[in-house]
Computed example of a mutant assay.
Amino acid sequence: MNSKSKKMHRITTCAIFSALTAILAQIEIPLPIIPISGQTLAVGITATILGSRLGAIAMICYVLIGAVGVPVFAGFSGGLQVLAGPSGGYIMGFILAAFATGMILEKTRFNYLYAVIANTVGMFITLVFGTIQMKYVLDVNWQEAMLAGVYPFIIVGFIKVLMASWIGIIVRNRLIHANLMVEKIA
């Protein structure tokens, strides 16, 4: 594959995973302030398959598409007001979560155990970013921010960690086996 083809392949791949995130964002369980959505599942799957660089780029694309008003965030929402609102920190945290998850896998191995560890780190990065922004946007104390922004997401978060790790490793291995992806993504 020549340089131009590789670049087009990377752009297309990032667009596909941004779209996956937008689709899974619409699967949600409403809660009073922040819904439980499939976005974080998509972040984990993306990072587990693509690694740090492309995983983070896919999430940057997702955030930018939503920032300009395309309704790709949970509840078919979009716009800068979402990023500046109580849930904006979670969405912005997807970028670092994808990068960190992918980086851990690149520095260790792309297998289920390391994927669970990496996705757990990613989950906590998202929760930290989200809770910090929620605390300041809603002007609540840390206990209230934790009650609304962390505790409701822990159990479901670990379920999504297990799912993202399992799906991500299986899909990644199949893509490599089918010569649709190389083991080391540059």
Results as ranks from 00 to 15, higher is better:
1 M>H: 10
5 S>I: 12
6 K>V: 08
6 K>I: 10
9 H>N: 13
9 H>A: 09
13 T>N: 03
14 C>N: 04
15 A>V: 07
17 F>N: 11
19 A>F: 04
20 L>N: 06
21 T>I: 10
23 I>Y: 00
24 L>F: 00
26 Q>C: 05
26 Q>D: 08
27 I>F: 05
29 I>T: 10
30 P>V: 00
37 S>R: 06
38 G>M: 04
38 G>Q: 10
44 G>V: 07
46 T>M: 02
47 A>Y: 01
51 G>Q: 08
52 S>L: 06
52 S>F: 00
54 L>P: 15
54 L>S: 06
55 G>V: 14
55 G>I: 14
59 M>D: 09
60 I>G: 03
60 I>E: 03
67 A>R: 06
70 V>P: 10
72 V>T: 06
74 A>S: 14
74 A>C: 11
75 G>I: 10
77 S>K: 12
78 G>S: 07
79 G>L: 07
81 Q>K: 13
82 V>Y: 01
82 V>A: 01
83 L>M: 11
84 A>S: 12
85 G>N: 12
88 G>N: 09
88 G>E: 12
89 G>P: 15
89 G>T: 13
90 Y>E: 08
91 I>Y: 00
93 G>P: 15
96 L>C: 09
102 G>M: 11
106 E>H: 09
108 T>R: 12
111 N>D: 13
113 L>V: 14
115 A>H: 10
120 T>I: 11
126 T>V: 15
128 V>R: 09
128 V>D: 06
129 F>C: 15
131 T>Q: 10
131 T>M: 11
133 Q>D: 07
136 Y>L: 11
136 Y>M: 12
141 N>M: 05
142 W>P: 14
143 Q>R: 10
144 E>W: 00
150 V>I: 15
152 P>D: 09
155 I>C: 08
165 S>F: 01
165 S>T: 09
167 I>C: 05
168 G>P: 09
173 N>L: 04
175 L>Y: 04
181 M>Q: 14
183 E>K: 14
184 K>A: 02
186 A>F: 00
186 A>N: 14
